[in-house]
C-alpha cells in the first residue's frame, strides 16, 4: 500500500546548522508514529517539514500523493494535515467557538451553522462543550490544548501532527490531553507525534523512532524499542523513563 506520508532523504539547514541529515520515513494510513530524541535532534523540524511550515533543502516529501517540493497549492495539502503545537497557539482574540469555526468557514467554506455544529460536536468529544464562549486566556493549559486538537480536527484532516503537545502542561493536564490523543489513535487517525510521554507511546504507537543529530537512530515497534539493545536508544530511554 502507498504510504500516506513518504519522506525521502531530506536535508535541512538553519544557517550553518545541519538540522536534518538525510531523513527517510514512511507512514501508512492509520499508523501512529511517535518520535523521541534530545532537543535539537531535528524531530520538530521533521514534523514541520511534513506540512511545509519549514522548507527543506534537499530530498522529497509526498503527502497523500502530492509532492511537497514545489507544490503550488500548499494550502490544499495543509487542509488535510492537522497540527497541534506545544504552545497551543489558539487565536487569542477569538472565543473557543470562533477558533474552531474560523478555518472551517474561510478555508472549507462551510456555513456558520454547519461549522458551529461540527465545532460543538468536537468540543463535546474533547470534553469541554461548556467552554464554547470562553476566550483562550480563561482556559487552563490542558483545556487550551484540547481546544487546539478540536480546532485541527474540525478540518477533517487525514493526518494529525503533534509537536510536543504536553510539554507545556502540568501532570494532571497532561493526562486529559493524552486521553484525547489516545482516543483519536484508537479511532484509526494517522498520527505523527513528537513526545516524550512514554506511557502514551506504549499504549498508542505502532512504531517508535529515536532521532539524534538530524538522523533517525532507531526505528522499531514499541515492544522492540523499549527493549532495544542499541546503545543510544538505551541511553536516551533511561533519561526519559527516569531510570536511575
Amino acid at each position: 500500500m502507498e504510504p500516506i506520508i513518504h519522506i525521502e532523504n531530506i536535508h535541512k539547514h538553519f544557517g550553518k546548522v545541519h538540522a536534518l541529515r538525510g531523513v527517510s520515513l514512511d507512514v501508512h494510513k492509520g499508523e501512529v508514529v511517535v518520535i523521541i530524541g534530545p532537543s535539537g535532534s531535528g524531530k520538530s523540524t521533521l514534523l514541520r517539514c511534513i506540512n511545509r511550515l519549514e522548507e527543506y533543502d534537499a530530498g522529497r516529501i509526498v503527502v497523500d500523493g502530492i509532492l511537497l517540493d514545489n507544490a503550488q497549492n500548499i494550502n490544499a495539502v495543509r487542509q488535510e494535515i492537522g497540527m497541534v503545537f506545544q504552545s497551543f497557539s489558539l487565536f487569542a482574540h477569538l472565543t473557543v467557538m470562533e477558533n474552531l469555526t474560523l478555518a472551517q468557514r474561510v478555508v472549507r467554506k462551510r456555513s456558520r451553522d454547519e461549522s458551529q455544529e461540527i465545532a460543538l460536536e468536537l468540543l463535546t468529544k474533547v470534553g469541554i462543550p461548556d467552554k464554547a464562549q470562553a476566550y483562550p486566556i480563561q482556559l487552563s493549559g490542558g483545556q487550551q490544548q484540547r481546544v487546539a486538537i478540536a480546532r485541527a480536527l474540525a478540518m477533517n484532516p487525514k493526518i494529525m501532527l503533534f509537536d510536543e503537545p504536553t510539554s507545556a502542561l502540568d501532570p494532571e493536564m497532561i493526562k486529559e490531553v493524552l486521553d484525547v490523543m489516545l482516543a483519536l489513535a484508537r479511532e484509526g487517525m494517522t498520527m505523527v507525534v513528537v513526545s516524550h510521554e512514554m506511557g502514551f507511546a506504549r499504549a498508542a504507537a505502532n512504531r517508535m523512532i529515536l532521532m539524534d543529530e538530524g538522523q533517525i537512530i532507531e526505528e522499531a515497534t514499541p515492544e522492540k524499542f523499549f527493549t532495544s539493545s542499541h546503545e543510544r536508544t538505551k541511553q536516551f530511554l533511561s533519561t526519559v523513563l527516569h531510570m536511575y
Binding site: N51, L53, N75, A76, R78, Q79, I81, G82, M83, F85, S87, S89, L90, F91, A92, H93, L102, A103, V106, V107, A148, R151, A152, M155
Partner: peptide, 26 residues
C-alpha cells in the same frame, strides 16, 4: 506571536486569510 500565523497556515489558510482574520485583528 509567530505561532499565531503558523497555526493559521497549518489550518490551510492562505497568507492573506491569515493576515485578514488572525494577524491584523490582533
Amino acid at each position: 506571536p509567530k505561532d499565531q500565523a503558523e497555526a493559521a497556515r497549518s489550518l490551510g489558510m492562505t497568507h492573506f486569510q491569515s493576515m485578514r482574520h488572525v494577524i491584523l485583528p490582533q
